[in-house]
Every structure is written in C-alpha cells, then in structure tokens.
Design a protein around this nucleic acid. Structure first.
Lengths: 351, 351
DNA sequence: TTGTAAGCGTTATCAG
DNA sequence: CTGATAACGCTTACAA
C-alpha cells in the first residue's frame, strides 16, 4: 500500500506538500506540484480513507437500514440512494431488519459509533410504543457525542426533529378509492396495511375520507388488517368471503396484498372486475404480470431514495439548517382489475 | 463521542488497560477490570472502528458489487450475504454496476484502496476481452500493496486463482431441457442468456448436451441470444415466430426472458403448453404469478450469497489456504407452462 | 499486572 | 510557498 510518505520521498518534498497538492488546500508552486503529481501517478497512490477518516472524523459512508432487501420495493429505493450517493460522494452500507425493531436499534447503534456520516432509515419503530419513542428520541440526541449523526427517515415522519422523505399516503389512498367510486362502486372493502404504523393509518384515513367525500358509508367489518405480505392479503380476503360479506370492490393497502386478494377471489370463483374490482397501492412490476393485472397507485420509489440521499447530504453539510419533510406525489395506474379498458401490458422493462 | 481516554480517566487506569479489557488481549486484575467495565457501561463506550482500523489495517467491512439491486435475483443473494456477514462480523458496502464493466472496475479500484477487507463480486467482465483479462488479473495481484484484498466471485469463475461460488449452470440447463424432452418435445428453441458470459455459454452447452443425449438435432436458427431482460425474451420470440420457425418448446436462458417469451406467444395466439411449452431457469417469484405459470429450475440464490460470504471470511482469516470453487445445485420446478399438471400456485410468501 | 509511548495515514497549524 | 510536527483513537511492544 503506497502511502503519502512514499509519494513525498519519491517527489522529494514533505508530506504536507503532497497533502496540499492532493486536496488543493494551499497553493503549491508549479514545479513541486508537477513532481508530486508525477510521483502520485508513478506510485498509483490514492489516499487511505481510514487515515483521512480518523483525522477528519468523516468517512463518506452512509448507513442504510431497511426492513428488507426485498423483491419489489426497496431495491428501487436503494437504486435511488446509490445513484445519489455516487453523485454526492458517499458509499452505502446496508442493513436489513426484517421488520424487527430490536435489530433496527442494534444497527442504528452500531452506525452511530462512528463509521458513518449519516443514516437513512426506513423504520418500523412505533410512535405509540414507549420504548420505541425513547429510541426515536435517541436518533436526534446530540448528547455527549462530539459527532452528531444525522438521520433521514424514509416513508414516515418519526419525529418532527428528523428530516424525512415521505409519500403522501393519504392522498395516494384517496386516489385509489376515488377511482373505485368513479366506476360506480358503493360498497368497498379495505385490506389495510399494518395499523401500528403511519403508513397503514394514513392509507386507512385516505380510504375513509374518500368514502366520506363520496357520501358513502364505511362498513367497519369490511376493514381487515394485513401485514403487507401477499399471503396476508390472500387470507384476509378468504376470511371476508367466508363471512359472506357483500362488496363490489376492494382497496388493498399495498400491491402485494392486492395480489393475494386477487388470488383469493379467483379461487372462490369471483370474476374480476365484473364481480369485484381490486386496486392496490405501490405499483410494483408483479402487478402487471398477474391476470387480471392489478390497478394501483404508483409511488416514486427510486425518487424516494434519491431525494433522501440528497437531503441527507445537505444535512451533513449544513447541520443547522431547519428540519424538513419532503413529500412526494403518486399517480393512478388503471389496469384490468378495475376496468376492462385498463392496460393489460406486462412490464417487461427495468427488472 | 466518548473515547478510550475518557474511559481510562473515569476508571482511573491507563488506556492500554482499557484496551486490554475490551479485547481480552492481556490478563487484567479483577479489580481494575471491574472498574473499567463500569466506566464503559457508564459512558456507553464503544470502540471507534476508524481508529482501530487505522492501527489494524482491518475494517470489518466487505464490498459487494452486483450488476443490479434488481427485483428478482440479487436481493435474495444480498440477503444471504447480509446474514452471513452478521454471523462473521462484517458489514456490507454495496455497489451497483448496471452491467457496465467500466463502472465495475472503478468500484473495485475504490474498494482496493483500503476501506474493505474483502470483495464479493458478481462480475460482467469478459474473459475473452483483452482489457478485461488484465482487470481480472489485477483482482489477484498482491503487487505492491501491503494489504491484499481477497475477492470471491459470484456466479462465475473469472480465474482459477479467484475463489468462486457458482451454480452448475450446465446441469441446470440440462435439467430444464430433459424435462421438455421427457414430455415428448423434439424441436426445442433456446433463447440464450448473453453468450459473452460464462453463464450464457454454459446454459447453451447444457442445452446442446441434453439434446444430443436425447438424440435430437439442434437447429441453430432456433437459438437466439437475449440479454436477460423480459423484453429481450419477448422480442426474440416475436422474431422467431415472424420467421415462421417451427418448434414445440422453448428453453429460456432465464425466467425473465421466459416471461417475455410467454407474453409473445400469447400475443400471437399460441396456447401454452398445448402448442408450445416454455421453461425458464432461476425460479424467481414472478414466474408463479403469470398465466400460465412458468416452469423453471430453481437456483439457490440466498445460499449463493451466504456461501460466498462464508468463503470470503475464511479467505480473509487464512490468506494462504488453497483457492476453491463452490458449486451449488439446482432443482426442477414444474408449473403450467410445460404441463397442465404442474403447480399453478402463486408464491405468496417471502416477498 | 500495569503504564508509557510509538505508530498506523492523514490533515492542519504554525514557523520559517 | 514549504516543511516539521501535533493530533485524530486505537493497539501493542516494551518498560516498570
């Protein structure tokens, strides 16, 4: 490993001069500069980031903590993060929690002990839970640490003191429900995303508001909570059908549950969309592949990651700037599960 | 940031004693040990890995370079890597190349300059390409560096001098083709994975061998090269159909192309599997969702990642141990695209 | 058993 | 404009 000392020796200058040439921190005479450059070239020298990190207390690394590297949502977010990371000069350390908050805390704690300059966190912490609240506070604690590690929260606002990039989930849900209403549906079931989290609550609120706005009653028995997974959508729908509930449309709290819902309806011999229309939310590519293809509301996943990294970068450079929440917008995508005229195209690109 | 010095001061001992307690490098009297432990606890001290890294020339970080954080293959590999990383005490730095070898080289070069203890690389380098060969050699170069950075190659054997974890692609392809043959197919088309890479070549070889073994002729016009993407499978199949070629079965070089193939066949009014049977290779979850569901050969993606991390760990601990190639096995999965009796179940779990 | 001090590769301060 | 040197947080001879 060639170090700064060897470069200095080879160029016949002091190490500070080499450093100054590298970082352009101070003017260096053309003659010396040339000699140093030459030596750097000859020795293929590159600075050792560990040494630099020790001195500067910066690593140019950011930690990314997500529930899952799973196969439809976070990979796209990660792509956005990675792309922005390259742009702003950060590399990405990844951690998977599987939705286990204890694991999440562990990873956060690990990162706070000085590897990373910042953290991007898609948290499963629950604001209502007392121990989780304490943990959330610790995210903004600048306490005894010399180095405060900024956090940007993905997808939910953990605390007003934490920068966040979110999607307007209430609006997205309303868009989905409004679509069903516009098709003439009056009795609509909702397979909710987990209600201990903001996302689930907001989507449910969006559902309620849209129903109210349309002057439609909400039958509480038609609201069933799932856990995001396709299988939970499947089971929830089976339960609803077993109970003999009547409805002509279903709004699923995400696409994965929507896919489970469709499967359950088909299994029980219902026609989609003639007997029951189904819409999800997320717009993942598998939703184009099933039959009938699943209508959905597109969420800007890549953008979410990109903006989060951008925001984190700004926070790291300017710790004092006011906290901010970036809200991204969503968009209706009509497919066959709600309308015969919807798109039946498969997404054959980008995966 | 509480450091070792503060712990030492608080405990009334020297920093080396603290270090010795932390790392159990030397015996420390129970009395002092207790005081140190207490101080560590009180101050919530954790070692600063940058300082340690500078001294030890180790970071306990490994870099992972993959073509894409895409939505069906590498996330599962990454999960295996992450899991094993936790087990062996490494954190994961990720890089995406989008199949761009220049980007890949850039990331490798970056990692070799002393952040990471090892590299897991799913390379797109081409052994036949002269400049790529040079690059591949540089992966084993221990040259002027004090610290040699071990590389484990994922999915292909770049060089006998590089540890690799691969899947027996030739065998997997044979399994797929044998299945078609056993169903009575005699004219089989192949949409090949990119033939500038081992994977594409091996799968093609497996195809040829299985055909030969079954005493069937191979029509070279029925071999079309795709690029892994669904859309390339779609286009390749459209081309084949336009040319009026006759065949009763298709072996796609991966599931994604297989999905494109199915779509193309359906678009042109062919029945699957009655008119044409289709099988892929990979066994990604989307293959269960399409209609008809796609038969495939399951590749152990998670296991691939896990074993690679395990192997890298061994290499890092024992630089001198002989190079090794771990070959993982695959397994036929029969669905509706080859047989009416195949499974039509959707994969509603694990994504 | 414990402490002192050197050194890992940088950057930054300060004197020349 | 240039260079000697301290400092970053830690590990590890070596001395006590």
């Amino acid at each position: 490993m060639t170090g700064i000392k060897e470069v200095a020796r080879k160029a016949g200058v002091s190490i500070s001069t080499v450093s100054n040439v590298m970082n352009e921190t101070k003017p260096v005479s053309p003659a010396l500069k040339a000699r140093v450059m030459e030596a750097i070239e000859a020795l293929q020298y590159e600075v050792n980031p560990v040494g630099r990190g020790l001195k500067s207390n910066k690593t140019n690394q950011v930690g990314v903590i997500v529930p899952s590297f799973n196969q439809v949502y976070f990979p796209a977010v990660l792509q956005g993060i990675h792309e922005a990371g390259i742009k702003y000069g950060y590399t990405i350390l990844v951690f998977e929690t599987n939705g286990d908050v204890e694991l999440e805390k562990q990873h956060v704690r690990f990162l706070q002990h000085s590897w990373t300059d910042g953290i991007l966190l898609a948290s499963y912490a629950n604001k209502e839970n007392i121990s989780d609240r304490k943990y959330i506070r610790s995210l903004l604690d600048t306490g005894s640490r010399k180095k405060e590690i900024p956090v940007v929260s993905l997808e939910n606002v953990l605390d007003p003191g934490i920068d966040s990039v979110i999607i307007d989930n209430k609006k997205a849900a309303s868009i989905a429900v409004n679509h069903l209403v516009s098709l003439g549906h009056r009795t609509i079931a909702h397979i909710a995303a987990p209600l201990r989290f903001q996302i689930g609550i907001l989507r449910l609120e969006g559902f309620r508001e849209a129903m109210k706005h349309a002057g439609l009653p909400v039958d509480e028995d038609l609201i069933v909570e799932g856990d995001y997974s396709p299988i939970s959508g499947y089971r929830s729908m089976k339960d609803l059908l077993k109970k003999g509930k009547e409805f002509t449309a279903v709004f699923a709290g995400n696409d994965q549950m929507g896919i489970g819902v469709i499967r359950a309806l088909l299994d029980e011999g219902h026609r989609i969309p003639e007997d029951v229309a189904v819409i999800g939310i997320d717009n993942n590519f598998p939703s184009t592949l099933i039959t009938p293809s699943l209508s959905s509301v597109n969420l800007p996943k890549y953008e979410l990651g990109y903006q989060a990294m951008r925001l984190l970068n700004e926070r790291m450079r300017e710790p004092k700037r006011p906290r901010c929440v970036i809200t991204l917008d969503s968009e209706l995508v009509v497919r066959k599960s709600t309308s015969k005229d919807g798109s039946g195209d498969w997404n054959l690109n980008g995966w």
